[in-house]
C-alpha cells in the first residue's frame, strides 16, 4: 500500500510544476496544458484521500472534475482556435484586446 502523504506530496509537486508553467510560459496552448495538469493533480489528491478514509465521495468528486475539465478543454481550445485564426498567434503577450 502506498502511504497517503507520498501521494499528496506528489500531487503538490505536480501542481507546483503546472503553476510555474502557467506563470512562465507565454504560449496559450501550453498554459492550457498546465491548467489540465493542475486539475489532474487535485484529482490525485481527492483519490488519495478517498482511499485513505475508505470513502467514495472523493472519487465521485474527481469524476465530476474530469467532466468539467473535458468541457473546459473543448470550449477553451475553440476560443484559442478562433483567436489564432483572427490574430495568427497564440502568444498571450500579443493577445491584449477584447476587440477582435
Amino acid at each position: 500500500m502506498i502511504p497517503t502523504d507520498y501521494v499528496l506530496i506528489l500531487a503538490a509537486v505536480l501542481f507546483a510544476i503546472g503553476a510555474i508553467g502557467m506563470l512562465v510560459r507565454r504560449n496559450a496552448l501550453i498554459i492550457f496544458m498546465c491548467v489540465e495538469m493542475m486539475l489532474n493533480s487535485t484529482n490525485l489528491t481527492l483519490v488519495a484521500l478517498a482511499d485513505r478514509w475508505g470513502n467514495l465521495t472523493g472519487q465521485v468528486f474527481a469524476f465530476i472534475v474530469m467532466a468539467v475539465a473535458a468541457v473546459e478543454v473543448a470550449v477553451g481550445l475553440a476560443i484559442i482556435m478562433t483567436i489564432a485564426r483572427h490574430k495568427d498567434t497564440t502568444n498571450i503577450d500579443e493577445i491584449n484586446l477584447l476587440k477582435g
Binding site: M1, I2, P3, T4, D5, L8, I9, A12, V47, A50, D51, R52, W53, G54, N55, L56, Q59
Partner: peptide, 21 residues
C-alpha cells in the same frame, strides 16, 4: 508539504477494501 507532514501521521495507508473504487 509542511501542512501534509504536520497533519497526517507518516505512512498512513488505505482504509477501504480493495474493491472500493
Amino acid at each position: 508539504i509542511w501542512i501534509v507532514i504536520q497533519t497526517l501521521p507518516l505512512s498512513t495507508t488505505s482504509a477501504g477494501p480493495p474493491e472500493a473504487g
